[in-house]
Structures are given as structure tokens and as C-alpha cells.
């Protein structure tokens, strides 16, 4: 008898608690910037594709839902010829972002990707690429890498000495 009264009382008290239910979708929940949702490919501060097609995201992916093919432009800058994520397999673990050496692949606070057909969850590079650097403004992998690409010769990256003159006999 007592326990019934106690339970009723507790339920009654809940009427005065703060409501936790969010009226989604009319009302959007707060998602932190580091929330792991829909994956995007970002761009360098100068607008070039950040992804250098190193395959590290693909190999880090526990469900193997990333496939790409590397290619190079005529100046030696490497980029993905195609870049495909099968979101119907993705578990949003964020390992790809962790593995990415160029901050190209990033997870965003967006989870609204529901589809009626699984095929629509296969995103190609055009679907993934955004027009900005995402969470990491300012970083450009090519400025710290040693290879030469269009617009950046040997010795022009950060903390690089000018190229050695191998014909010189000076000690």
C-alpha cells in the first residue's frame, strides 16, 4: 500500500522536473563540433583538395567502407581520382579522421542522412567535398611535405633548406 503511494508521489513530482525530450525535428538538438556524423572532405586554405589519396583512412576503417584511387596531376600533386564512402556501412567511429595526415577527412555534426534506398547512401567525391578547411583552418599538408608540386619547388616548404648543389666541391 505504502509503496503504491510512494510511486504515485514520485510520478507526481516529475511534473515539476525540467523536460529532457527535444521536439525533434522542429527543434534541433545541440551537437558539439567534434560530434561524429556525416563525413566530408575538406579543402586547403588556398582552395585545393586536401586529400592526397594516401589510403590511410581506407585502411583504418573497421568496416572497410572507404574506397579510393590515387592519381597525380601533371605537377606531381597527388589527389584521389575517385573517393567513395558507403555510408550504409559506416559506423561513424572517426578512425578515418584520426588516421588522416592532412586533415582532409573530417566528421561533421550532421546525422540527418536517412534514405529509402541504400544506393543513395553511397557518396562519391563530389558529394563529400566541401568548399572550406572544416575544423582545421590554416593547415596545408603540402607546405610541410618534401615533394615538389605546382607552385612549390624544392626547398620552399616550411623549415626546408634550399636544394643542395651536388656539383659543388665546397665542404
Amino acid at each position: 500500500m505504502f509503496s503504491i503511494l510512494r510511486t504515485t508521489g514520485r510520478v507526481f513530482l516529475h511534473m515539476f522536473h525540467r523536460r529532457v525530450t527535444v521536439q525533434y525535428p522542429e527543434q534541433k538538438p545541440y551537437l558539439a563540433p567534434r560530434y561524429r556524423g556525416r563525413i566530408i572532405l575538406s579543402r586547403d586554405p588556398d582552395g585545393g583538395e586536401r586529400c592526397v589519396a594516401c589510403y590511410l583512412c581506407a585502411v583504418a576503417c573497421p568496416v572497410d567502407c572507404i574506397a579510393l584511387q590515387a592519381t597525380e596531376d601533371e605537377t606531381g600533386r597527388r589527389y584521389p581520382e575517385f573517393f567513395r564512402i558507403n555510408f550504409s556501412r559506416c559506423i561513424f567511429c572517426g578512425y578515418c579522421e584520426e588516421a588522416c595526415p592532412t586533415y582532409a577527412i573530417q566528421l561533421t555534426p550532421d546525422f540527418e542522412m536517412g534514405e529509402f534506398h541504400r544506393e543513395n547512401l553511397v557518396y562519391e567525391k563530389e558529394d563529400l567535398l566541401i568548399n572550406g578547411p572544416g575544423k582545421y583552418p590554416g593547415y596545408n599538408f603540402w607546405n610541410v611535405a618534401g615533394v615538389k608540386i605546382g607552385g612549390k619547388d624544392k626547398g620552399e616548404a616550411e623549415l626546408e633548406a634550399p636544394p643542395v648543389d651536388v656539383q659543388s666541391l665546397m665542404p
Binding site: 556501412r89 541504400r118 562519391e124
Partner: peptide
Amino acid sequence: HRYSGRTAMLANITVS
């Protein structure tokens, strides 16, 4: 054993 992309490499043709 680290072979990657198994669930995406053919996803543009067939998603299963």
C-alpha cells in the same frame, strides 16, 4: 590482412 575498401569498392555498381 589489412586489405581495405571491401564494402565500398563495388558500391557504385551494387551496394550489397
